[in-house]
């Protein structure tokens, strides 16, 4: 009995669910060249978070991956991953696009 209860509790505890909060997309270029992608995330414990500055590095990082180029068709996925019955979660923003070089 205790073993079954333990397994059920563990299943609930270690399961994780992902919410897709929003998606946005800019105009897609006709000529699709190299794809670049970056991700920024932040761990949140017990819901305490005081800024969203982790997103600051997304644009410079994408620019580094496409140096002296233009990134078009930018897809932004804003999602939240819940771990451990919502006490621990990860906010994740995945940004990808096509690097166009002249």
């Amino acid at each position: 009995m205790f073993k079954k209860l333990f397994i059920i509790v563990m299943l609930f505890c270690v399961s994780s669910c992902v919410h897709l909060q929003s998606v946005s997309l800019t105009q897609i270029p006709a000529k699709k060249s190299k794809k670049v992608e970056t991700e920024a995330h932040k761990w949140i414990i017990l819901g305490f978070t005081f800024d969203n500055d982790y997103l600051d590095e997304v644009v410079p990082e994408l620019n580094r991956r496409c140096s002296n180029g233009k990134i078009q068709g930018v897809l932004t996925k804003d999602e939240t991953v819940n771990y451990f019955i919502g006490l621990v979660m990860k906010q994740r923003v995945v940004v990808s696009g096509y690097c166009q070089k002249a």
Binding site: Q21, S22, F48, N63
Partner: peptide, 20 residues
């Protein structure tokens, strides 16, 4: 008690030609 909740994030096109 001043938690920040993010609802939406969106990025636009990046033109790195000649620097940001």
């Amino acid at each position: 008690y001043g938690c920040v909740v993010k609802h939406h994030a969106q990025f636009g096109e990046i033109d790195g030609r000649g620097g940001l």
